[in-house]
Write a protein that binds this DNA or RNA. Structure first.
Length: 492
RNA sequence: GCCCCCAUCGUCUAGGGGCCUAGGACAUCGCCCUCUCACGGCGAAGACAGGGGUUCGAAUCCCCUUGGGGGUACCA
């Protein structure tokens, strides 16, 4: 069997969104599974909307996800160039060829005229299609039209009988009626640029793409493309149309559903491994028991046969959960490398890290690891470890530090801390128990106020871990600070 | 309007005629662990869109309806 060649062909009109990433992933997995070639091609023929910056962002996003391409921008390859804007001569060549063969023709109808006719067809209950009126223009007529200043487009002289069947690897055979569904669509716009349907065929054929794996939104365009393959005598690739990704309201996923940009997810602290794993499950599943897949496993197990046909709703909660799973699986060293930038940006840690600071940071991370779901969470959940002027959460202070004995409890702990040889559970618990009896309270009633005093919140790692991490000096100064705050606010 | 695709718990899915009193995961709820929050463990609730067929037998096959999605551009 010949080498599998697939491609991902984004248009650089914005960031890489979740849907595009999933399409890229499926292509990539398919290529790696079959030891094939993954091609990246930039579809930038829409000059008005395409930008270099957007191209770079897409490249960055693919890189972040680990979807490396074998041919394409930066990498190069034997079937370049990989930017459509640099392939204009090719489209011209094939358009000329089709004209010569009589399979394409110039059309001088204006957008306004076409629109009007479309409206009319709709009113009549007919399918909207180009009526072919420019198909047999004489040379004189063309000259007249040109003299009027009209710029022609080039249209395909499509087959107007029979049907075109798409043999889809996921959906089976899908039949389209040539008479009503495949019209003489535009190949080359009046500004000389190729349309998507034309460029995609020329490029996929020339780049020897064997499997076209793309979103279902392209299924309806496929018969048009097939007619082009046939007119140009190009071998037909196999097609696989994967289901769309929807928002919670079942509408196509878009910006209005919140973050959809892969790089935004990255910034929020989603791990590439979690993104890839979650995305792989959108429209694909393996068996009835497994949801966590490593990348090698995905490569091994991914097949188009197991791609589902129905659209999938993007469930951010499941992604978050999965991200937590991957965070918990990280080594402390790895976790630290990923957390460091967040802490540095928050001003918690300097650019230069001493071994002591690194060790402290890692000890904190060990405690935080099971408590965060996004890397960005390390900022809020660790601020009191790095700031001595940590804020007090007002409602928590009100609720917990206004209870009876608060001052005595804190003072008791203050004294006890001085005596303890080490701030750990072994040494402190017995002392706290003495306090419990002294005040006639439960352990929680001693620990909660202490937690609030030390952290400003009622949520933190285990109290003995917090005490140990902070150390005797800080614990005492924080108790003093809290007592002062309470007195100032006249809460005790 | 016309055409195409799709239809299992709230969500992602397993299921490809009998193994299904429909399995798993997220979310939800309860219990356990426990100094809070997580993590972890145990458990509960929760679906074959509706109607016709085919068949000894249908979540699985066919048809219709309904619902959702997509296409219908000199966007990609």
């Amino acid at each position: 069997m010949s080498t599998v060649r697939v491609r991902f062909a984004p248009s650089p009109t914005g960031y890489l969104h979740v849907g595009g990433a999933r399409t890229a992933l499926f292509n990539w997995l398919f290529a790696r599974h079959h030891h094939g070639v993954f091609v990246l091609r930039i579809e930038d023929t829409d000059l008005a909307r395409s930008t270099d910056a957007a191209t770079q962002v897409i490249l960055d996003a693919l890189q972040f996800l680990g979807l490396d391409w074998d041919e394409g921008p930066v990498k190069g390859g034997d079937f370049g160039p990989y930017y459509q804007s640099q392939r204009l001569d090719l489209y011209q060549e094939y358009a000329a060829k089709l004209m010569e063969m009589g399979r394409a023709y110039e059309c001088f109808c204006t957008p306004e005229e076409l629109d009007q006719r479309r409206q009319e067809q709709m009113k009549q209950g007919q399918a909207t299609r180009y009526d072919g009126r420019c198909r047999h223009l004489s040379d004189e007529e063309k000259e007249d039209l040109r003299a009027q200043g009209r710029l022609p487009v080039i249209r395909l002289a499509s087959l107007d009988e029979g049907e075109t069947v798409v043999h889809d690897l996921i959906r089976g055979d899908v039949t389209f009626d040539n008479t009503t569904q495949v019209d003489d669509f535009v190949l080359v716009k009046s500004d000389g640029m190729p349309t998507y349907n034309f460029a995609v065929v020329v490029d996929d054929a020339l780049m020897k793409i064997t499997h076209v794996i793309r979103g279902e939104d392209h299924l309806s365009n496929t018969p048009k493309q097939i007619q082009l393959y046939q007119a140009l005598d190009f071998p037909l690739p196999k097609f696989a149309h994967i289901p769309m990704i929807l928002g919670p309201d079942k509408a196509l996923l878009s910006k209005r559903h919140g973050a959809t940009s892969v790089m935004q997810f990255h910034e929020d602290g989603y791990l590439a491994e979690a993104m890839v794993n979650y995305l792989s499950l959108l429209g694909w599943g393996y068996d009835d028991s497994q949801t966590i897949f490593s990348v090698p496993e995905l490569i091994e197990k991914f097949t188009l046969e197991r791609v589902s046909k129905n659209p999938a709703v993007f469930d951010i909660q499941k992604l978050e959960w999965m991200n937590g799973v991957y965070i918990r699986a990280l080594s402390v060293e790895d976790l630290y490398e990923r957390a460091l930038p967040y802490w540095q940006r928050a001003g918690f840690l300097p650019e230069e890290i001493t071994p002591e600071v690194k060790e402290y940071a890692q000890r904190i991370l060990k405690e935080l690891q099971s408590r965060i779901r996004l890397m960005a969470d390390v900022v809020e959940s660790a601020q009191y470890f790095f700031m001595d002027d940590y804020p007090y959460q007002p409602d928590v202070v009100q609720k917990i530090l206004t209870k009876p004995h608060t001052e005595e409890i804190l003072q008791y702990v203050y004294e006890v801390i001085k005596e303890a040889p080490q701030l750990n559970e072994e040494h402190l618990k017995p002392l706290f128990q003495v306090g419990m009896e002294k005040f006639g309270i439960k352990m929680g009633e001693l620990i909660q106020p202490l937690r609030v005093a030390l952290t400003g919140t009622n949520v933190s790692p285990g109290i003995y871990d917090v005490l140990e991490l902070l150390g005797s000096e800080k614990v005492r100064s924080r108790i003093e600070r809290t007592l002062a705050m309470l007195k100032e606010k006249e809460l005790i």
